[in-house]
Design a protein around this nucleic acid. Structure first.
Lengths: 342, 342
DNA sequence: AGCCGATGGTGAAACGTTTCATGCGTTGGC
DNA sequence: GCCAACGCATGAAACGTTTCACCATCGGCT
């Protein structure tokens, strides 16, 4: 059963092509009884619009794409959910592409998306570096919004979260709780996010006389790396050992928590612990984890809104760089049970 | 800069439309020097194919869609990755849609995908029930492959994992390790997967005289629910208490692990523990968790391959129902440290 | 009666491809 | 020296929409 076209609908309803099109796009401009005849024909034939034809004619599609570094990463899936909401509210469709941190795949996707003449593009590029393909899209008038990357470029919008502030919040919280010897666990330092969080923590502690920040560098941001780091901390003499640890992400923190427990240190009594990201497991850990939460869904939603705004009216649109503020979520791992706020 | 069309390329290269098209689609049918002139013109103008026009003409797109219940669920992200691989190998594009377990959104997506005339559809439907919209797609000749649902329907392929077998493997392992009083923690029982895993475990134990399977039902499949279940088990008298627990998924198992530890029971010495799904955290838990692993990526890859096969040649295609076998991954939570195999 | 505006409907053009029958010049076989 | 075959290029048709200038009808006004 070949899909019916507008032409057959017109024939069955005894009207012209244009009228059917009007029923579809400007129903109020068609007399009620004609409209009914057309609608009946449509449902009788099971007619479904052909998007390709529509967009060929219109020169533009209602599709917005998001290219993420890793579909399996909860950070991105939440961003996707946010973007999805915004795009669907605008009656569009979001298509999710996964670059898998692979530059070649990213390019492949960009090529296909350009061929599809997508309405616009949300992307966390694999390289922070200038990106020829991306520039080209922008030159062609396809709006691009950067997600969590390269904020501040003049010819596109961006959204990001302030990791320096996140580091500050974590360190301040620990200092406020009375800790003086604090450790930062994270690495490799080449990752921008890791370095920002560290810098924020260091900066915050300058306002607290007598505090020190010991850096324990890790090879990765994994549970295992956290466990190793904890072992290194446990063997330090109790007198000079830190009394609090700030980890660059929650996976590390969970590993650290295990390592500390194995080494006989209790959390939070002997050692306070702060993570970063507030992944689902943070709240569900053996000791619920204080963590710094990023507004992930909002990041995606805002990115999509900026994009749609630009697509709607490129002339009036001014590029913006939105930076969200992370939020400290305090749980048991930094304050003893009874005092834990929610 | 309006995007250049084939027409302008033809003019610049001094050839006809058809020739440009030939260069693009059958380069060997064009004389080398003509071909070169056309290619030069293409790169000079920065010409990019218009997919809409192409597909309008062709009547079909190279796009395959996958509709998942929840983009944030690691199970589905892995399935997506598998499908992605297969589709890209076939030089197509995979678009990911998220129904969020919401029937209305699912229908919205199906409508848009039908308008787009996608090549085919991978879907885990929100309802197991017969699905009018889906039937319609199939009637129109759009291939559909069910993922992890409703296996055995005559007019479409499906892929799934054998949960009954998974339950068997877990229970056999525990029985082989010498356990006789075993508990199954999971719920609500209305979820097919939960019931299958339970049934598998129960069936397996029939082969082991003297074994018993106590069911501890939970309200959900979460860490918290697991912690509650563990508390209920801890208070049982040691003499009749189970010595091993099989959980319907890893989240529950992690909660159970925490609850047992809090209740003073050691894993695996006092209580063996098996989870299901083998999520990343299973291996990283305080006591690395024995778990049942589903071949998630392969599930996606196979689904996509079946789909592409059907799309390629619907006539010759016979619908198949592929059932994958889960695999038991043994870690410390069921065998004491030194004996742990990998 | 003649004119006007409103209302509802028409049909052709255009969007950018691909395909296919056709044409034309060259080559090789006989 | 003729014909067939071949290699290459051509240009028109078709895919299914949307848009837009135009037409027909009709009721109300002057």
């Amino acid at each position: 059963m070949a899909a019916a076209s507008i032409k057959e609908v017109a024939r069955l309803a005894g009207v012209s092509l244009g009228t059917v099109s009007n029923v579809l796009n400007r129903p109020e401009a068609v007399a009620p009884q004609t409209r009914k005849r057309v609608l009946d024909a449509i449902s009788q034939l099971g007619y479904v619009r052909n998007d390709s034809a529509r967009h060929l004619r219109a020169g533009q599609s209602r599709t917005v794409a998001i290219v993420v570094l890793d579909v399996s990463n909860p950070f991105f899936t939440d961003v996707v959910r946010g973007a999805e909401g915004a795009v669907e509210d605008a009656d569009g469709m979001l298509i999710v592409c996964n670059s898998g941190e692979d530059r070649a795949r990213e390019e492949r996707h960009l090529d296909m998306l350009e061929e599809q003449r997508v309405r616009g593009l949300l992307i966390t590029p694999v390289d922070d570096a200038r990106h020829e393909r991306l520039e080209r899209l922008i030159d062609r008038g396809i709006p691009v919004v950067l997600v969590d990357r390269g904020t501040g470029q003049p010819n596109r919008c961006s959204v990001a979260v302030d990791d320096v502030l996140g580091g500050q919040l974590a360190a301040q919280h620990l200092a406020d709780e009375g800790h003086r010897r604090i450790a930062f666990v994270g690495g490799p330092a080449s990752i921008r996010q890791v370095e920002d969080r560290h810098a924020g923590a260091a900066a915050a502690l300058e306002a607290y006389p007598g505090t020190s920040l010991q850096v324990v560098e890790t090879r990765s941001l994994s549970v295992t790396a956290g466990r190793d780091a904890a072992e290194r901390i446990c063997v330090q003499p109790a007198a000079t050992r830190p009394t609090a640890i700030f980890c660059a992400n929650d996976l590390l923190a969970l590993g650290v928590l295990q390592g500390l427990t194995a080494g006989g240190l209790r959390v939070p009594e002997d050692m306070a612990l702060v993570g970063y990201d507030d992944i689902d497991f943070a709240a569900a850990a053996a000791v619920p984890l204080t963590s710094v939460r990023q507004p992930r869904e909002q990041l995606g939603r805002t990115a999509a809104e900026l994009l749609l705004e630009e697509a709607e009216d490129p002339a009036r649109h001014g590029h913006r760089h939105v930076v969200f503020q992370p939020q400290l979520v305090v749980r048991q791992s930094t304050v003893s049970g009874t005092r834990a706020r929610r």
